[in-house]
């Protein structure tokens, strides 16, 4: 079964743009949460990751901070 992927990001952050592009390039569907405009998502992100830096990627509960390609690949078994 496909893993559930959530991306917490801001519209302006370069590495968020690249993280999302990376997921798209690998045909991974994800929920795109803009923590700049969505306060609930922002609080959820801070609670899950214990920090405020973006992007934060939640892959089936595994929290990856930053655009860490190796960790994303591992979590998605790419």
């Amino acid at each position: 079964m496909d893993k559930k992927v959530k991306v917490y990001s801001t519209t302006t952050c370069p590495f968020c743009i690249r993280a999302k592009q990376f997921l798209k390039d690998n045909n991974i569907a994800f929920e795109d949460l803009d923590v700049g405009s969505n306060q609930v998502a922002a609080e959820e992100m801070i609670k899950k990751s214990g920090q405020m830096g973006v992007p934060v990627i939640d892959i089936d509960g595994e929290i990856i901070i930053g655009f860490d390609k190796d960790k994303i690949k591992q979590a998605l078994e790419l």
Binding site: T10, T11, T12, C13, P14, F15, C16, D34, V35, G36, S37, A42, M52, G53, V54
Partner: peptide
Amino acid sequence: YCAICDGPL
């Protein structure tokens, strides 16, 4: 260290 990234928060 990245206003453009984290500013909107």
